[in-house]
Write a protein that binds this DNA or RNA. Structure first.
Length: 484
RNA sequence: GCCCCCAUCGUCUAGAGGCCUAGGACAUCAGCCUUUCAAGCUGAAGAUCAGGGGUCCGAAUCCCCUUGGGGGCACCA
């Protein structure tokens, strides 16, 4: 498909490896990906590693893994800005030559005291343009002093810049509220402003879809495009995702890195569906959309402007929903790594896949995340279960009555030949009357005996899966736990 | 302090002047189902559409102001 300007759609996701990607970063990636796929365009991955001091080891790998995990495949890249320094320098020379940029020798110390002064006088912190029009002798003096300059953009002093944002509409900034921002740092690396403009141009990016936090630096970028005589891409800023405290997502918000969600057992499809609904909607009722539907339906027109607080409860619900939709085979595949990871070490590995399948068919409806599964299913795998013996007692059930019920039930079970839920229930249910107990009471007691828990899958299905031997052992164990 | 953006149930949102006595989803509560827990189904509660002015026959929807929230203002991205 062609965009309005007649060129094909090319979008990029351009994270910086200064940390692990969080929900907000990934939502941006997702929207770019959906936009590209919808328009049959290209999704390009670019690593903005121009700050060597903040680089986090392993971050690039985590970024790539996260995208792969979610199925957000890219068509080009990853490109690394740190390997493209020559391109930036060349462009800076051009800007310098044409008077759109200038060398600035101000020391970090001077800049800091300047800002300090400005703050004291309640002035907006802005570079005072000290080096903007240096006299020639002053320049030579500074050059010979050995100070390494930075390159700054010569921002127009008057006028204003207006651009049309695909999400927010017309946005205008007066030039006198901008300052002469740095293009090239003294270490020779470009700043974000420079590098992203150059790369977006060189890579013929058609649409820049990024978080709203970039809205206020967009006029700088527009000005740069103009100075370079390049056509700017279309900009579309995406509403922010906020933490529960309504502040920009950060490390302070705990589990916000996307790889945490993988570890917690969320499914990529659920994650994608949920994230898509943060800032975008199809209509007034559709909540569940497959990847294909999302691609087909996604449009910038339906992206909202309001920042969204992300709601983990809803994510959990959606994940549970996707989990329940899985067929048993898929479910086993998904759950197996989590069982291996979280079941106690003394449980024999490898786990028997057929047995795991039977177990999971019982807990499938009960898990909201894959990480809950080992916990929900642990009693199926342990030889001995631990629980508070007090659970065996009830209102009408003292130790003696409980012991009797357990003994009777145990004896009855020993007789059962066909070990399936229906047969088991047919044999055990009548015992309630004989023991003068309510069925709920008896079943509740047996549930504790067999699972050690008050909440578990249906009793007879559980007994069926557990097997005769293990069940009878648990009946004996319960008897031993009961006070004499 | 300055600049920019935003403003509908607790949260995510629908709503592009009359269909709104504001719809859906999550969460909450209740009922049904039921041997427990889930799931499922049904229902309830929950938003004077931030407040105030306009415009209009008519405003959640358009304009202005106020307030609130967010973002930006680095040799970070």
């Amino acid at each position: 498909m062609q965009s309005e300007s007649g060129t094909s759609v090319r979008v990029r996701f351009a994270p910086s490896p200064t940390g692990y990607p969080h929900l907000g970063n990934i939502r941006t990636a997702l929207f770019n990906w959906l936009f590209a796929r919808h328009h049959d365009g290209k999704f390009i991955l670019r690593i903005e590693d121009t700050d060597i001091t903040r680089k986090v080891e392993g971050a690039v790998e985590v970024i790539l893994d996260s995208l792969q995990w979610l199925g957000l495949d890219w068509d080009e890249g990853p490109y690394f800005q740190s390997q493209r320094l020559a391109i930036y320098r060349e462009t800076v020379h051009k800007l310098l030559k044409e008077g759109h940029a200038y060398l600035c020798y101000c020391s970090p110390e001077r800049l800091e005291t300047m800002r300090h002064e400005q703050a004291k006088q309640k002035q907006p912190p802005k570079y005072d343009r000290h080096c903007r029009d240096l006299a020639q002798e002053e320049r030579t003096r500074l050059e010979s002093s050995g100070a390494t300059p930075v390159v700054r953009f010569r921002t127009p002093l008057e006028g204003e810049t207006t651009f049309h944002d695909l999400v927010y509409g017309l946005v205008t900034f007066r030039h006198d509220t901008l300052d002469d921002f740095v293009l090239l740092k003294s270490d020779g690396y470009p700043t974000y402003h420079l590098a992203n403009v150059i790369d977006d141009h060189v890579m013929t990016i058609s649409h820049v879809l990024r978080a709203e936090e970039w809205l206020s630096s967009t006029p700088r970028h527009v000005l740069l495009y103009q100075a370079l005589n390049w056509q700017a891409p279309q900009f579309g800023h995406l509403p922010m995702i906020l933490g529960p405290d309504r502040a920009k997502l950060s490390k302070r918000h705990g589990s916000t890195n996307i790889n945490e969600y993988q570890k917690e057992g969320y499914l990529p499809d659920a994650m994608v569906n949920f994230l898509a609904l943060l800032g975008w909607s199809l209509d007034d009722r559709t909540e569940v959309l497959s990847r294909e539907e999302l691609i087909k339906q996604f449009s910038l027109e339906r992206v909202g402007k309001t920042a969204a607080v992300f709601n983990k409860d809803k994510l959990e619900w959606m994940n549970g929903f996707y989990l329940r939709k899985l067929n048993l085979g898929e479910y086993v595949q998904q759950a197996m790594p989590f069982l291996n990871r979280d079941l106690p070490g003394f449980v024999k590995r490898p786990l028997d896949e057929a047995y795991v399948g039977e177990v999971l068919s019982l807990i499938k409806e009960r898990a909201k995340t894959l990480a809950e599964i080992p916990q929900l299913a642990s009693f199926f795998f342990l030889d001995e279960i631990q629980y508070d013996p007090g659970l065996l007692l009830g209102k009408k059930l003292d130790a003696q009555a409980a012991a009797k019920a357990i003994t009777v039930a145990s004896r009855q079970l020993q007789e059962v030949e066909i070990w399936d839920a229906t047969t088991l229930e047919g044999n055990v249910r009548p015992l309630a009357g004989e023991l003068n107990l309510g069925t709920g009471e008896l079943f509740g007691l047996l549930r504790i005996v067999v699972t050690g828990r008050t909440a578990a899958p249906p009793l007879f299905q559980t007994i069926a899966v557990l097997g005769k031997k293990k069940c009878l052992e648990r009946f004996d164990a319960a008897l031993r736990l009961l006070p004499a």
